[in-house]
């Protein structure tokens, strides 16, 4: 009998981080399966412990990042996603997945828009872990580093909201050097339940220590921070949680 937590990765035309994200999930102990979106039905969603929206350019992102994928999900799968969340499922969006979750309104209100200089930015970003006991972040230290790669990653929201997300502990990750001019330096958000989690940085790209740009990086002898990110949620779902039953996660 399969005991590993089961994650499915939704693959839209243009999703392109699915393979390495599945690899990261498997390495952390998940059973991970990549599902082309056309194959996804209610049962596949509801049969998973975690649904992952990986990075990429869903349907090209030509209208705005994540818009068409958002509409396609809403047309067919809204009800099953709702049931999935009611039953305690976890929903993770990375980069383009985060953009899709924002457009779906499953995370605190705001938007991810083009950078002021109009460019794509592929670089590493230092991040503050603002929720060190969160199921996704509890194995990570207060400050980590992950790669970012996006053109539309600047978090904006109506006046005052971004700051309130930081105060209320909904902003899970913030940039240390605000690489893309996000309001309140927000790099990742969670919803009130803590089970919808979106982030611009790519934890799957820092699974192994050797993926760091500095050969003398001293953070960990074998693994990158991304490994501990996926390991955190794996252990939570596998019932290995050190602090079981956490429902909300606030800034400590």
């Amino acid at each position: 009998m399969e005991k590993r937590p089961y994650a499915i990765l939704l693959k839209f035309p243009g999703t392109n981080c699915d393979v390495e994200t599945a690899r990261a999930l498997e390495t952390a102990g998940f059973r991970a399966e990549i599902m082309p979106f056309r194959q996804v039905v209610s049962e596949t969603i509801e049969g998973a412990n975690m649904v992952v929206l990986p990075g990429g350019f869903s349907y090209g992102d030509y209208i705005m990042a994540g818009r068409l994928a958002q509409l396609k999900i809403e047309h067919g799968l809204s009800a099953s996603l709702e049931r999935f969340m009611e039953n305690g499922g976890y929903l993770l969006g990375i980069c383009n997945g985060f953009q899709i979750l924002m457009r779906m309104g499953l995370l605190p209100a705001g938007s991810l828009i083009a950078h002021p200089d109009g460019r794509f930015a592929c670089r590493w970003a230092r991040l503050r872990n603002r929720c060190p006991s969160h199921p996704f972040l509890r194995f990570l230290p207060d400050e980590i580093e992950l790669p970012v790669a996006h053109a539309e990653g600047r978090f904006v929201a109506a006046e005052g909201l971004a700051e309130s997300y930081v105060e209320r502990g909904l902003a899970t990750l913030t940039y240390q050097d605000n690489v893309n001019h996000s309001f309140a330096s927000i790099a990742g958000l969670q919803d009130e339940t803590g089970r919808v989690f979106g982030m611009m940085p790519h934890p799957e790209r820092f699974l192994y220590r050797s993926q760091h740009y500095d050969p003398d990086w001293v953070g960990d002898p074998d693994w990158g921070w991304g490994y501990y990110f996926f390991k955190s949620i794996h252990d939570e779902l596998a019932g290995l949680s050190r602090e079981p039953g956490l429902k909300t996660h606030t800034n400590e």
Binding site: I63, R67, L71, A109, G110, S111, I113, V156, A157, A158
Partner: peptide
């Protein structure tokens, strides 16, 4: 409004 506009920004 629902497809081409981002209501937030």
């Amino acid at each position: 409004q629902s497809v081409l506009v981002d209501p937030v920004s």
